[in-house]
Nucleic acid binder design. Structure first.
Length: 289
DNA sequence: ACTCAGGTATTAC
DNA sequence: GTAATACCTGAG
């Protein structure tokens, strides 16, 4: 049913920072600068007016609760930013650049599949693949004369063949999606157990058994899904670049080892490494484009 | 024509 | 263990 919810005088909430910091793929900017996206069985438009935010759309449950959970509104990002900004000037500048970042509570299954698709791929193509996947196998939601599609559940992908994935433009990731879906529907990996396990090392190990999930994708899943592990530090080409530029300063960034980067991240950022990564990543990407 | 993009799996030392 | 290599696809 259609609902609306407004929050006045909000801090640490900027649409561009949240939706374009690399954590999600299904939010799209509209002509008026607002963003519309699908998550769970909901379609929402998010609009910022001054210091107020307005959420409108089709929401299965109570919109206030839904939004508070998904947008991580309970967390004190001001406090986190203050803490990180004290570390050094690099963090200070990065945070200034993306002060409105929030880490979304995204569905674990959707995050797993999305980041498998992200491997050695670019954002426009990742988004296109996910939309086609949803349009073909997800459920329709109608809102304001538009049709949106939910992200397909494991059951909805259960009988999809490798060839069908290939036809959607998955490329060499087709087999990974097929195998991972199979592992999950056959309960080789139990997502509920992962969500309930407080041991990050164990959860990570389990994620790594999934086809197409390596260290980087596993860390993205840990950080960007409802698993919400802020201590992990996903290292992709951009993070490698920014960490080398700011801290390690090796002439050839490709020679910097992953361990080296992880060590610096742990020492500098501790259990907030994931958040620090997000500010740095966002900053480095913004100064290029 | 050729490189590159949010890496992973496989193979070879 | 660690290094090298192939890999769909489409945009620039």
């Amino acid at each position: 049913m259609e609902q609306e919810y407004k929050i006045e005088n909000i801090n640490s909430f900027e649409l561009k920072d949240i939706f374009e910091c690399g954590q999600c793929f299904r939010w799209n900017i509209q002509e008026d600068g607002s963003y519309t996206g699908v998550f769970g069985n909901n379609v929402l438009n998010v609009q910022k007016e001054g210091k107020n935010v307005i959420f409108r759309g089709i929401c299965k449950k109570d919109i206030k609760e839904t939004v508070e959970y998904y947008f991580d509104l309970e967390r004190d990002y001001e406090a986190i930013k203050n803490k990180l900004a004290k570390i050094d000037d690099n963090m200070k500048i990065s945070i200034q650049n993306g002060q409105g970042i929030r880490i979304l509570n995204q569905d674990l299954w959707e995050t797993i599949i999305s980041f498998i698709i992200s491997a050695n791929n670019n954002i426009p193509r990742i988004k296109g693949i996910i939309e086609r996947l949803s349009a073909k196998y997800g459920k329709q939601i109608k809102w304001k004369n538009n049709i949106y599609y939910t992200f397909p559940t494991p059951e909805e992908l259960k009988n999809v063949t490798v060839e069908e994935y290939r036809s959607l433009g998955l490329g060499f990731r087709d087999i990974r999606l097929y195998e991972t879906t199979k592992m999950i529907t056959e309960n080789k990996v139990n997502l509920k157990e992962l969500e309930e396990n407080p041991n990050t090392i164990e959860v990570r190990e389990k994620l790594l058994t999934l086809s197409g999930v390596g260290p980087k994708v596993a860390d993205c899943i840990l950080l960007f899904s409802s698993l919400k592990r802020f201590e992990v530090f996903p290292i992709d080409v951009w993070v490698r670049r920014v960490m080398n530029d700011l801290y390690i300063k090796e002439a050839d960034e490709k020679k910097v080892s992953k361990n080296q980067i992880e060590k610096v991240a742990r020492e500098k950022f501790g259990n907030l490494a994931g958040l620090a990564q997000q500010y740095l990543f966002n900053y480095r990407r913004n100064i290029v484009s």
